[in-house]
C-alpha cells in the first residue's frame, strides 16, 4: 500500500504550494503524473487522497487527476526511442542492453487548479 504514503506526500506538497499563493480559494483539481513503471493503483491512490484531504479545509473539494505516462526507452547505442507495452528492456533493433528509461519512472505533481484569483 505505497499509495497511502504517496497520497500523504501529495497533500504535503500541495499544502506548501497553496500557502505560497496567498489565496482564499479552494483547490479544485490536483494533477498528478506517474510513470507506468511505478505500479500505482489509481483507485487506491484516490482513496488515500480523498481520506487525507478531509483534514485540510482548502483541499476538501479537490479531485485528484492521475495522468499516466508511458514507458519509453532510449537505446544508448543506436539512439532509437521506443514506447513499450511489455517489460522488455533490450533494444529491439540492435540488441543492446545499454538502455535508458526516458519516461515511465517519474512521479510528480504537475499543477493545481484553484477556484479564486490569487495574488
Amino acid at each position: 500500500m505505497h499509495e497511502l504514503s504517496i497520497a500523504n506526500n501529495i497533500v504535503t506538497i500541495v499544502e506548501e504550494e497553496y500557502k505560497k499563493l496567498d489565496c482564499n480559494g479552494m483547490v479544485q483539481k490536483v494533477y498528478f503524473n506517474t510513470g507506468r513503471m511505478n505500479a500505482i493503483i489509481p483507485d487506491s491512490l484516490k482513496f488515500g487522497f480523498n481520506t487525507i484531504k478531509q483534514n485540510k479545509v482548502f483541499l476538501k473539494e479537490a479531485e485528484l487527476i492521475i495522468i499516466e505516462s508511458p514507458i519509453i526507452l532510449k537505446c544508448k547505442k543506436c539512439n532509437i526511442e521506443k514506447e513499450i507495452d511489455e517489460p522488455f528492456f533490450i533494444c529491439e533493433k540492435c540488441g543492446s542492453t545499454n538502455i535508458e528509461v526516458i519516461s515511465g519512472m517519474e512521479m510528480y505533481i504537475d499543477s493545481i487548479e484553484v477556484d479564486d484569483n490569487c495574488n
Partner: peptide
C-alpha cells in the same frame, strides 16, 4: 486558475 507546480512527490525521501 491553474498553477504549475512540477515537484517530485518523493523529493523528501
Amino acid at each position: 486558475m491553474k498553477i504549475n507546480i512540477i515537484r517530485k512527490v518523493l523529493e523528501v525521501n
